[in-house]
C-alpha cells in the first residue's frame, strides 16, 4: 500500500479513483497515567505516556484507513490528512482521511 500526503504517488501514475477512505479512533488514557501526567506537569518536559498513547491510536487509525482502501481494491492512498480533537476531558479522537486510488 502506497501512502502519501501529496496529490500523487511520485514516480507512478494514477489509473482509477475510488473516493474518500478514512479511519478514526477515540481513546482515553487510564487514571494512573493521568495522575502521573499531572505530577509531571509541575516539572515540565515530555509526557511520554501521552506521546505513546497518541502514537498507538494514530497507527490504529492509519491501519483502519488502509484496510478500508484494500476492501475497495485500491493499492494506494493519496492526499492523506490527519486531524486531532479532544472530545471529552482525557479522551482524544484521531481522524485520518485520504483518497483511495489505483496506481501503476
Amino acid at each position: 500500500m502506497f501512502v502519501s500526503n501529496i496529490e500523487e504517488i511520485p514516480g507512478k501514475t494514477i489509473t482509477t479513483c475510488y473516493g474518500i477512505v478514512s479511519g478514526s479512533t477515540v481513546r482515553a488514557k487510564h487514571v494512573g497515567r493521568d495522575i502521573f501526567a499531572s505530577i509531571k506537569n509541575i516539572f515540565g518536559g515530555e509526557l511520554k505516556a501521552y506521546t505513546e498513547l497518541l502514537g498507538e491510536s494514530r497507527d490504529e487509525a492509519l491501519g483502519r484507513m488502509k484496510s478500508q482502501a484494500q476492501q475497495l481494491g485500491a493499492n494506494a492512498i493519496v492526499n492523506v490528512r490527519f486531524s486531532t480533537s479532544s472530545v471529552a476531558a482525557g479522551a482524544a479522537e484521531i481522524y485520518v482521511y485520504g483518497t483511495a486510488v489505483t496506481v501503476e
Binding site: S4, P10, F43, G44, E46, L47
Partner: peptide, 21 residues
Amino acid sequence: IPISHAELVHGHVVISVDYFK
C-alpha cells in the same frame, strides 16, 4: 532525478509546561 518510491512519515510529541511558567 527519477523517484524510486515514496512513503508517508509522521512524528509527534507531547510536551507540558512547568508550574513556574
